[in-house]
């Protein structure tokens, strides 16, 4: 769907993007992750043709990015904004028409979405009369009203209350199910981890990692487990060559240990060793979060 190839964007004093290449599959939900100032917004602006890259190219469905693609992209910028004194309905119509819809088509679509999001009574209202959460809903509708194939959401959940996060998430997943490709851009990595199929990590204008979330996480598993058992005996001797204890602490129901299983051993060996000694209540594999992986990557880079 979207191929980003060797994009370089140079501003006067710093390089916002340095040779960034990303492939985004059709129909996927893609997470563009990285801390503030990493270059995410610069990349998004280039995809939206707000600015142009110094070198590199972007292809949409194999076609070089051009102005005919504007109507196929829906963009929710990080900094939300609408005309404060303009009626909502009129404003939606204006924005939809700017995306290339005809007036009648736009009217129909907006009415459909207003009904779906239970906003029918807002048509004649002005933005300044709405609460912040309501404004976010309006802005979301403005982003998707023209049925874009590619939806780019920059920090989509900032400013939403939990109820609206739920509603918007559901709508996004529905749109995805109907074939739209979604790009999430955020610095709060845990917020989109569960939604995304694929991610790319951007740090200091470089892409440091990308791929399927599952694959990335698997590659960062390191045989670490967390085990809880109901014994308060701190004298318990758990010295063994099967695993080493990374951490041991008292919890309400007993003791919790975090272990790293030594190579050539597996979780069954651990259980076999522990069962005669204590009563196990829980055992989980510790899978690193994207955030952990990110931090790990950044620290090794530095």
């Amino acid at each position: 769907m979207l191929s980003i190839r060797n994009i370089v964007k140079q501003y006067a004093n710093h390089r916002a993007l340095d040779d960034v290449s990303i492939e985004i599959e059709k129909g996927s939900i893609f997470g563009l992750l990285g801390p503030n100032g990493a270059g995410k917004t610069s990349l998004i602006r280039i995809i939206n043709q707000i600015t142009a890259p110094d070198s590199g190219e972007i292809l949409i469905n194999g076609e070089k990015l051009n102005s005919s693609h504007i109507s196929q992209i829906g963009y929710l910028p990080e900094e939300r904004g609408l005309y404060k004194k303009m009626e909502i309905g009129e404003q939606m119509l204006y924005l939809a028409q700017l995306k290339g819809m005809s007036k009648s088509e736009a009217t129909k679509k907006i009415k459909y979405w207003f009904e779906k999001m239970s906003m029918e009574t807002w048509w004649k209202k002005k933005v300044e009369d709405l609460s912040k959460g309501m404004q976010q809903k309006v802005q979301f509708v403005a982003t998707i009203v023209h049925d874009p194939q590619l939806i780019i959401l920059d920090e989509p959940f900032s400013g939403f209350d939990p109820v609206n996060v739920e509603i918007i998430t559901k709508e996004i997943l529905d749109l995805n199910k109907n074939g739209a490709t979604i790009i999430f851009s955020t610095h709060r990595m845990e917020s989109v981890e569960k939604l995304c199929d694929n991610i790319a990590l951007i740090h200091k204008s470089h892409k440091i990692l990308d791929g399927r979330v599952k694959d990335i996480k698997n590659s960062y598993r390191n045989n670490t487990y967390r085990i809880e058992f109901s014994a308060h005996n701190s004298d318990l001797n758990l010295e063994t060559e099967i695993f080493e204890i990374l951490e041991q602490k008292e919890v309400e129901e007993g003791t919790q240990i975090t272990i790293k299983i030594n190579d050539s051993r597996n979780s069954n060996d651990v259980l076999a060793y522990l069962i005669p000694k204590v009563q196990i209540t829980q055992m989980n594999e510790v899978i690193p979060s994207i955030n952990d992986i990110f931090i790990q990557n950044v620290t090794t880079l530095n």
Binding site: R45, Y75, E79, G81, Y83, K84, L95, L98, G100
Partner: peptide
């Protein structure tokens, strides 16, 4: 200041 500019320049 209302930041609607970014929405609009993504269209025109």
């Amino acid at each position: 200041t209302t930041r609607i500019i970014e929405v609009i320049v993504s269209s025109v």
